[in-house]
Simulated scan of single mutants.
Amino acid sequence: MAFTLATWNINSVRLRMPLVEQLIAERNPDILCLQETKCPDDLFPAAAFRKLGYEHIAIHGQKGYHGVATVSRRPIEIVEKRRFCEIEDSRHISVRFKAGDKAILLHNFYVPAGGDEPDPAINPKFKHKLGFVQEMHDVRADQPDGAGSILVGDLNIAPLEHDVWSHKQLLNVVSHTPVETESFEAMRKAGAWADLMRLNVPVDEKLYTWWSYRAADWEISNRGRRLDHIWSSNNLVPAFEGYEILRTARGWERPSDHVPVIARFSL
């Protein structure tokens, strides 16, 4: 049985609900993980999602900032809304669902952006980001009884040289500094997570999921970064059939600066 899973930093779910509807009309994923919903739970547009066929909804939101949501066409069970760094931010939710005969634990993350100055001594936002990634070491891919795990979200780090438009120019820019990328990859490997987007894509091939609002013409300049990720436990790698970065969504009306990434699995 095949299923599709999409992850997207929507940058305000209520403001950009028409774009969500466009994504669903064009790609119709079975499960949709949103980040930066910027919406308290009582104002989340659950009725609109149910009208679109997403009867099963798990949300962890707050007013004006952060927020994650996982909506699904198939039953899901909320497992955890984890707090990181002793800060009450809505940046994680995990759910469990069935695919074929396998139980899958799905993590939806929104990692702190980290501000502008890559120095934890003078920038508390960057210090928070580094601490958050360090605590993610405890999020493990391996599950008991052969269950599978998937981790998706806006992880706000472009770890590899060709996950950014210019490795040399961005080495001192938050999201691609060595302290971030090294910690990020160490965390991923410690958790035994497979980076599905790079499985069959050469490391010297550019991959972007985000283009800044600051660019006069994002498409022509193409100064992107891969900030959005899809990982899985190793026992799900054989079921992974590929993914799509929906680059055209960056050109939709009033877009997010991130675009959806859609993964296909066969279980």
Rank of each mutant, 00 (worst) to 15 (best):
Y213Q: 08
N108Y: 02
F84Q: 02
F3E: 00
N235G: 04
E80T: 04
D42P: 07
L155W: 02
E185A: 06
A263P: 00
V173R: 13
A194P: 03
I230D: 00
N222Y: 04
L246S: 06
A46E: 12
E36M: 12
K125I: 13
H92I: 04
E244Q: 13
G191S: 08
A263W: 00
A113W: 00
K168E: 15
S149T: 13
L151C: 11
E135T: 09
H56R: 10
E185G: 05
I93H: 01
P202G: 12
N200E: 13
E135K: 10
S90T: 15
R188F: 05
I59K: 01
A158V: 05
A121N: 14
E80D: 06
Q22L: 09
S221N: 11
R214W: 11
V95H: 01
P238Y: 08
R198M: 12
H107L: 04
Y208T: 02
T209Q: 10
P255R: 09
Q22F: 01
R188N: 08
R27T: 07
V13A: 11
K63C: 12
S233D: 01
P45E: 10
A47S: 09
L5G: 05
K38W: 06
V79R: 09
N11S: 10
G251E: 10
I157W: 01
P144Q: 10
F265M: 15
L227F: 00
A121P: 07
S232P: 02
R140Q: 11
W165E: 15
V13Q: 04
H229C: 04
D41P: 08
V139C: 14
L32H: 02
A190Q: 11
A121S: 14
I220D: 07
R214I: 13
I150F: 03
A46Y: 03
P202I: 14
S183A: 14
A147R: 09
L160P: 00
A239I: 03
V95D: 02
G251I: 07
E86R: 11
S232E: 05
L151I: 09
E205I: 13
V71K: 00
A2R: 06
L15G: 09
V133M: 13
G115L: 05
A46H: 07
Y208N: 02
W193E: 01
R16H: 11
L155Y: 03
W193M: 03
A69S: 12
G115Q: 06
Y65D: 15
L267Y: 04
A46W: 03
C85S: 09
N200Q: 13
L52T: 08
P124V: 13
F3Q: 04
L32I: 06
G191R: 08
A239G: 05
V13Y: 04
T248Q: 14
C39T: 14
R223D: 00
L151W: 02
R140G: 08
V259D: 00
K206Q: 12
V111T: 01
T177Y: 07
